[in-house]
Nucleic acid binder design. Structure first.
Lengths: 221, 221, 221, 221
DNA sequence: GATGAATGAGGGTTCATTCAT
DNA sequence: TATGAATGAACCCTCATTCAT
């Protein structure tokens, strides 16, 4: 799991010598996605310039159009490329046969390590705002990330309810309550981190304490 | 409280006949802010065109620059203009001498009615993303909204803790946990409402149930 | 002669207390001209903003239009206001009954003191370029300054020729040759002074040496 | 020498058919410079509109920015493009082993033909005024034109002094005196030509007569 | 006469997209 | 497939001028 979902770009860069033509093309495609990640993160979708994306990817602006039909499609593909590898890992964790709190602690740690401390958090922020203007992006994210995650969360909590590990069914009806602190953490970081840093792990643990009581946490970092 | 902080623009538009010069100027300023609210909400800060703002406000583009030095300053003032009137009402509610749950239910209702069901939710979304690029905006929002609200929340929950109304101090340490469902609701609405509508009141009530247990809610709608 | 043609603005500013209405209006008019002098000099006619002129004059933009029909007319009047007082002094010097070289040395000194070391040199530069686009300005300068000066110069040199003080009639045919070093000095100062300072008095004296030979100058500084 | 430094634009426009890609790009660059020459000359740097430059060059406004980073850089390059080819010819003439008067007559003719009767005179006028606001332009002109010319003039006149061809060293100390009539001619043409035409060749010859006496000129046109 | 808010016509510059090489 | 010059549609902002107070 350690490298489960980090930086797709990394694998694309190794050993361009001895690469087949197809591999070189794929590598270039990933270089563009990786550059887009950085530029979109730094400036937002509208303000990001394809010229800068190209420069960072080591290609020329026209080349981007060999791989993606337009700027919006590049954005869509970026979202998919960033989050698809993560969903599997997430589901695997949630479906594990362990006490709910332990699972949720692992999931929290997964979020911290593979989203909050990577550039994925930037992409989430991009999605939050620019998704409004690009329904296709939001739709694909909904299908590929939100629905699977929410379903898994519901299943998990229903089981926990049956087992008596929790007594409230709030989160079964509103799985969004589980990810709410994640969203807040990302938003806070973007806006107020320089004014008042936020202890994300503390925040997530406090949240679990609300759910399960402050009883001893299992599975320390 | 009902109309405590809604739509500053509305009052400004009535009866421009018989208005003094100063009143007409102020009205025009508010018309611009109101138009900016709509355009920025619909397209985001970057993509919004001042030409459209002007057209919607019934003035000419140059007039905007009589009232605001540039586009960014207009954005800043928009945030302030939208949220300043709300903070007082919010604090008054939180400081009331009532059981914590009742207070939080009232506050939730305030959010639903005066933010979620008004264009303020759009401004919050604007802040979330574009605030990153305009630290002054984020800073002023932090000082004028975040800090007062978080302080009030802390006081409230500490009192609730003392009185034995709750047993967890999670939210004292992380007042962000109270507003987390608000943020999620706003984000969800922007992205996924058309795919899966969200019952915001239900969400907030479920959240309170998590905190206090599902015991009878006081102060129904 | 010392104060013969300096800064028309100065006299306008004294004693606004006890001034009649007409005097106050005239003073304001001169304040605007003086401000225009500064702004036009610093930025050129096109780039100078009437808002800045107004600010510097201590009035509001609209007020300028009470005194001058438009920007171009302000420019025209500025030229006249700056140079008219100088022409009389200049002619008086040239017409004096003295040896030509002595007269020309006095005239050179007049140029250095009342043009080159005052803001008039800026106005001359303005005239040189922007005059091209505003023929009315050039025309009035031609009539009021160029023709009288050239006529006086011709008379002077014809007399000097008759008296045997000089042997060449070049300057009688081309009085422009007398002012050529003046023009060069002004241009040089605008462009290259910071790279290579120019000794203007030396330049003018060397020029006279060419005309009369290096024989002892009369009329030291 | 006849065509030594005239109109760089002319050669660039011939035969765009059968041109290599690089040649076409260079031709377009020159077309833009040539158009800028015309527009800047006609209206001045500030007032000239890049839209008109583009139209005249037969390109679209954006294309200008492919070749020059901004309007000012276009101006700078224009100056260099116009005068660089001339300096070599000028120095070659001055350094020739001939009597000083003959050399200066040839140089005068060079000025008349390749500056005064070409659009270079317009560029000189542009430099005179707008150079003040763009020191980089003035600086590069100083290095590339003024210094070489002044140095050559000094050398020439020192030699003439040694040979007894002249007796005054005024111009050795102030080489600006040689070009003073040039500057005056250009300024006069811009402002007063329509009121009183100026015989430039006569002016320059009269100037040489002042220096050498009216003795027979050598090397008529 | 003085004010200053309002006007409105561009101006320079940017940038996603196209296309000939 | 990659290139990068060319395109052209906007966009933000400026500023001379007007006019109601």
């Amino acid at each position: 799991m350690a490298n489960g979902g980090t930086e797709p770009a990394l694998s694309a860069k190794r050993s361009l010598r001895h690469a087949t033509r197809a591999e070189r093309i794929a590598a270039r495609r990933e270089a563009i996605l990786s550059a887009a990640l950085n530029e979109f993160s730094a400036r937002g979708f509208e303000a990001a310039r394809l010229d800068d994306v190209a420069k960072r990817a080591g290609v020329v602006k026209g080349t981007i159009y060999q791989h993606f039909p337009d700027k919006e499609a590049l954005f869509e593909e970026l979202i998919r490329w960033m989050f698809r590898p993560l969903v599997g890992t997430l589901k695997a964790n949630i479906d594990a046969d362990m006490p709910a709190r332990m699972i949720l602690e692992r999931v929290a740690e997964l979020f911290v390590r593979d989203v909050y401390h990577t550039s994925r958090k930037e992409v989430m922020r991009l999605l939050i705002i620019d998704g409004v203007r690009f329904p296709r992006v939001a739709d694909s994210y909904y299908r590929e990330v939100v629905v699977p995650v929410n379903d898994a969360v519901r299943t998990l909590l229903r089981r926990a309810l049956d087992r008596g590990e929790i007594t409230e069914n709030a989160m079964v009806r509103f799985p969004q309550l589980l990810v709410a602190p994640w969203v807040v953490a990302i938003v806070w970081r973007g806006l107020f981190e320089h004014l008042e840093p936020l202890d994300v792990r503390g925040l997530l643990r406090a949240h679990l304490d609300q759910l399960f009581g402050a009883g001893a946490a299992q599975d320390g970092p």
